[in-house]
Design a protein around this nucleic acid. Structure first.
Length: 355
DNA sequence: AAATCGGGGAG
DNA sequence: CTCCCAGATTT
């Protein structure tokens, strides 16, 4: 942390004016709704990945009221493939709260934003600074990396102590932001971290902060920020039942509202063969052993590894006592795009139904 | 303070 | 393969 006349902000802004990104879709127009949506999509997701999702989303649901009136399934379908689906459910719930509490607008108030699900301190700051030019700091992964280097902050940024220190630094830098440039400053920091002060091979030779950066001066750029402490990932396996009827539709099951892939449509899953056989006999009847074993699907989460082993049947019809109700339904291939489906499962279905 | 939640990009 | 990213929420 330095004096209030710190040059950090003006240096980053000068870089941004020349080398930053000025053509992102949420910058034109830079409305609170579009900024909000972009910030939620960009949580743990890179710009390049989020871009097509953003265009599709605002095209289908252009404002808070449209989002609040949309069925959750449509929102999840628009989100399908982005991951962290709680973001989509929170976004949807927050839009409805905006209609209830704020006249169908995104509130221009820090505490009101924080009270909305899915919006934390950094996202609230990003919305207010970008949409309104308010003088509020952000602290995302990019900013954390930049500040760790510029101020040589040791320790993994995921710990509360380090994060607290980084917030203090980010707040201190606000004093150096010229009047009327907060929106650009917020975008500039994220751009700067994403394109110049990258995790690997930062372009220090082109950096406008060479004179300010303690890590560069002490030769510690390669070791900051401190990486997360390593940990082995547990492995889990499950059987995935892929049932196709005479019309080549596939049987999908809505997952529970909490846990992994919450509320998404997926294949019936069972931890072991006995559970799968029992489910099959109750819903279909005989024929479990006619299954064709497909190639396993490996999927890695942050905290464990999942291997899905698909078992496929053709020409199946459900038992008379089984209702094709709200949580269990036959879905034609043409209807898959309209449903929220986990990416690896969607990939499997498209591969299997392509023929 | 630690665990939970996905998917993809990049080395 | 490994790491980790434009984080927030829950416990």
């Amino acid at each position: 942390m330095r004096a209030p006349d710190d040059r950090f902000a003006t240096r980053v802004l000068r870089w941004f004016d020349v080398a930053g990104r000025h053509d992102l879709p949420w910058q034109h127009p830079r409305t609170p709704y579009r900024v909000w949506l972009s910030e939620i999509m960009l949580q743990q997701t890179q710009v390049r990945v989020a871009l097509p999702y953003f265009e599709r989303f605002v095209d289908a649901l252009p404002d808070v009221r449209a989002l609040s009136a949309a069925p959750l399934d449509q929102v999840l379908a628009l989100w399908s493939g982005l991951g962290y689906y709680a973001r989509a459910r929170n976004l949807h719930a927050a839009a409805r709260l905006c209609v209830e509490r704020h006249g169908g607008e995104v509130p221009r108030d820090f505490d009101a934003l924080l009270a909305l699900p899915g919006i934390g301190r950094s996202t609230a700051g990003a919305i207010l600074s970008q949409a309104w030019g308010d003088r509020i700091a952000i602290l995302d992964g990019n900013v954390k990396r930049v500040l760790c280097r510029v101020h040589a902050v040791d320790g993994w940024p995921g710990t509360p102590a380090v994060e607290k220190r980084l917030w203090a630094v980010a707040d201190a830098h606000l004093a150096g932001v010229p009047e009327g440039r907060m929106a650009d400053y917020t975008q500039a920091q994220m751009d700067f971290g994403a394109t110049l002060c990258t995790r690997h091979d930062p372009a220090c030779v082109l950096c406008p902060l060479q004179d300010e950066c303690t890590a560069l001066r002490t030769g510690r750029v390669g070791e900051l920020p401190t990486p997360r402490p390593g940990k082995p990932l547990p492995e889990r396996e499950a059987l995935a039942l892929l049932l196709r009827d005479a019309e080549d539709r596939v049987l999908l099951l809505r997952r529970p509202p909490t846990g992994i892939w919450a509320a998404l449509w997926s294949l019936p899953e069972h931890a072991d063969r006995e559970g799968a056989r029992d489910w099959f006999s109750r819903h279909v009847g005989t024929g479990y052993d006619d299954a064709e074993a497909l190639e396993p699907i490996a999927h890695a989460f942050t905290h464990y590894r999942l291997t899905l082993r698909p078992l496929a049947w053709h020409g199946v019809s459900l038992g008379a006592a089984v209702r094709d109700d709200g949580d269990l339904r036959w879905v034609a291939r043409a209807d898959l795009p309209a449903l929220g489906i986990p990416a690896p499962v969607r990939s499997l279905l498209e591969r299997v139904l392509r023929a």
